[in-house]
């Protein structure tokens, strides 16, 4: 028993912010950013745009492609670091927009969110508790970014991407790791403004990242997760058609290619969107799936705050 992805969609902010746009208000340049990250532009929520709007668009597109009506969905999961409101959950609001009345969950696993939601969907399928699951990964990193810190604000973007999963005989294989107390502080964001007079929790709400430590974590985690999947299935990288990595930084993808070879198997689109946290893997899937053939073996792999890493090997 397992799962099959039968529809995908995306919802992107209208505003495109290029590296040159950033250079207008901070000491940076297109050359500096693109050489160090591979990123050329990103989409940012602007004006009255909301994550709910992006999520609704992505979900509707995925449902349409899956030829599935909202009332056929047994479980809706939204993966997000933070929705438009602290409460209610974005998944509740999205269910309302789509006219759904099913179990809803928000999953806050940062960049690994989509993979954790796939793992949960698979458990629902195996338990006989769902036939179809909708996952929407929706992130507004622009709300967590310190826009005076050029070392981090150039990296991130906002986006939503969705996938409809169906119970099938295609059994996926997962490899997940949570490092526990080891290194979580290298990538974190505090909660933001509170005014409780009884505590002094560090609280500017911004994302903090130690780039060198996260690079080492990312490349070592990708290597470990992919090897674990290949070993479990007695496969080699030659047997895999495409590896969809979390789109954090082109340098990290190059680090993976250094270890596995086959750059053609590692597509990327972070040059257009920056790092969109949990939305990046399903957004890349949505954009490149036209190249897949039935029976192709895919690896989806993400890494991020936790520190967590997760990967899934499945057949298309």
């Amino acid at each position: 028993m397992g799962l099959k992805i039968i529809g995908t969609g995306s919802g992107l902010p209208g505003k495109i912010v290029t590296n040159n746009d950033l250079a207008e208000f901070m000491d940076t340049s297109d050359e500096w950013i693109s050489q160090r990250t591979g990123i050329r532009q990103r989409r940012i929520l602007s004006g009255s745009e909301t994550l709910l709007e992006l999520s609704t668009k992505a979900a509707a597109e995925a449902l349409q492609e899956a030829q599935t009506s909202p009332d056929e969905i047994d479980l809706l999961m939204v993966t997000t670091i933070g929705g438009d409101y602290k409460t209610p959950a974005l998944s509740c609001l999205l269910a309302g927009e789509l006219g759904m009345n099913c179990i809803t969950l928000d999953v806050n696993m940062a960049c690994c969110g989509f993979l954790y939601a796939m793992h949960t969907a698979n458990a629902y399928f195996c338990a006989g508790m769902a036939k179809k699951v909708l996952i929407v990964s929706a992130e507004a990193l622009s709300r967590l970014t310190d826009w005076t810190d050029r070392s981090t604000c150039v990296l991130f973007g906002d986006a939503a991407a969705a996938a409809v999963l169906e119970h099938s005989d295609c059994e996926p294989v997962f490899s997940m790791e949570l490092r526990g107390k080891d290194g979580w502080e290298h990538l974190h964001a505090t909660r933001g403004t509170d005014n409780c007079p009884f505590n002094n929790f560090e609280n500017n709400g911004f994302l903090h990242m130690n780039g060198q430590d996260i690079y080492k974590f990312a490349v070592s985690s990708i290597t470990a997760r992919i090897h674990a999947l290949l070993d479990t299935c007695s496969l080699t990288i030659e047997d895999i058609n495409t590896v969809l990595l979390h789109q954090a930084n082109l340098r990290i993808i190059n680090g993976a290619v250094t270890r596995f070879g086959h750059p053609e198997k590692f597509p990327h689109n972070m040059e257009n969107y920056g790092n969109t946290s949990s939305a990046s893997v399903p957004l890349l899937l949505h954009e490149v799936k036209g190249n897949f053939r039935p029976g192709d073996k895919l690896i989806l792999c993400a890494f991020g705050a936790g520190l967590a890493s997760a990967a899934c090997l499945l057949e298309w």
Binding site: R36, G211, Q212, D213, Y215, K216, V219, S220, N249, R251, G255, T258
Partner: peptide, 23 residues
């Protein structure tokens, strides 16, 4: 060599020399 170059090289040197390097 920028900071990510150093991180990548440190990983390669760790593998080649069998040591753990705290940057």
């Amino acid at each position: 060599l920028d900071s990510l170059d150093v991180a990548e090289l440190v990983m390669q040197i760790e593998d080649a020399c069998g040591v753990e390097i705290d940057i």
